[in-house]
Nucleic acid binder design. Structure first.
Lengths: 202, 202
DNA sequence: AAGCGGTTTAACCAAGTGGTCAAATATACA
DNA sequence: TGTATATTTGACCACTTGGTTAAACCGCTT
């Protein structure tokens, strides 16, 4: 209200995101989204054509906030050591800044696996360059012998898991929200260390 | 029908599980569950009191198939090297045998974080013993210096991630269902190798 | 065959759902 | 100012939802 010009469309997207995240698409109610945005329900249909379209809009907006950074990292040509650092830092930073994304994606993934994978491929996201680089490094003897695809999945799992399973990990380790935030930041160096130790040839 | 005595209750649970898994609790329809089980909708209310209760029954049944094994591993007193192997093998084996669990848990996690964490703690699942063991091993100089909780999360992430994000990983790596199954089995040795390399003191 | 408990069914219901629409209001422009 | 255009609203609707209920069905004992 105050300083920001009231942009109804963005208002709706934000409200919809909030509701969709912890209710899911099926669990969310158009009325609840409208209430959250402080507007009339019919406006949702005025700006977006309906629930499905609104969900898709929210989802695409979410995707567009993290895909570019991810794509960039996967394709960037740089020394492997530095690339790992960049990879880890990018993933963790993006997710710390947008903590709602993982739950959102995983949710969509259950209901519509093919769609999301299609989106990724369609966007041009492709792990080939990095997989090749890993194999090269192995061939050159720079890093330990290992299967490239497993290494890739390891890296992803180390970065993403604490975000996906945030509530469990936080709960099990008995951490406050602030503590967990710190923990996630810490992980950047911790993961890099862990991975580097693991791949260094002895 | 044929050999098995028709046990309606189990029939319902199985049908409900199928539907709940890829529709979520909110997205699932009682009618669809009834159809899937080949029975009348009212029977669902006869055996279970309603949708919520039915979902809870399915969820608890799922939990009871993996919690015992996990709890056992966390508490088992054995040499650290062997424990890592057991840890990884247990998690991966349980999930290969029950591939529907991760999606189910993650789904429930979004809608009701506190409940699941409560269930875990209430069940007596507690990472303390293993965390302590890790710290001891470090103190004894058996493994590299590192933060125990990060190590724990690393281990979990390496094991669980490819199951949670199954469709993405499978899609991105362009694997068939059978190939991915093999990939998951492979991971048992791959993860153990990865972790051991990482923690071994140089 | 009659009676009885547990099981299964079809028909039904109230509440809530996404979606529509004409009217009201704000906004820009002449 | 007046008027056309875009935005916003309340009231409404057709339909689906989870849930209920009375009656039918089954397998049993007497």
């Amino acid at each position: 209200m105050s300083a920001t010009v009231k942009n109804t469309e963005k208002l709706i997207l934000e409200a919809a995101r909030k509701v969709f995240i912890h209710k899911g698409c099926a669990g969310a109610r158009m009325q609840e989204i409208a209430d959250e945005a402080g507007i009339n329900k019919a406006l949702l249909h005025y700006y977006f054509r309906g629930k499905d379209k609104l969900f898709e809009a929210v989802f695409l907006q979410a995707a567009s906030t993290f895909l570019p950074a991810i794509k960039d990292v996967l394709e960037r040509d740089m020394p492997f050591n530095q690339k790992i650092v960049l990879f880890v830092n990018t993933y963790v930073d993006v997710l710390v800044a947008n903590p709602y994304i993982p739950a959102f994606v995983i949710q969509e993934l259950n209901n519509n696996p093919a769609k999301f994978v299609g989106l990724l491929k369609n966007y041009g996201l492709n792990p080939r360059p990095m997989l090749l680089q890993i194999e090269q490094e192995i061939a050159l003897g720079h890093i330990r012998e290992m299967k490239a695809d497993h290494f890739m999945v390891n890296l992803l799992g180390l970065c993403l898991f604490p975000f996906i399973a945030r509530p469990v990990v936080k709960g099990i380790l008995n951490m406050s929200e602030e503590k967990y935030q710190e923990f996630l930041i810490e992980r950047k160096t911790e993961i890099v260390q862990f991975v580097k130790n693991s791949i260094t040839v002895s």
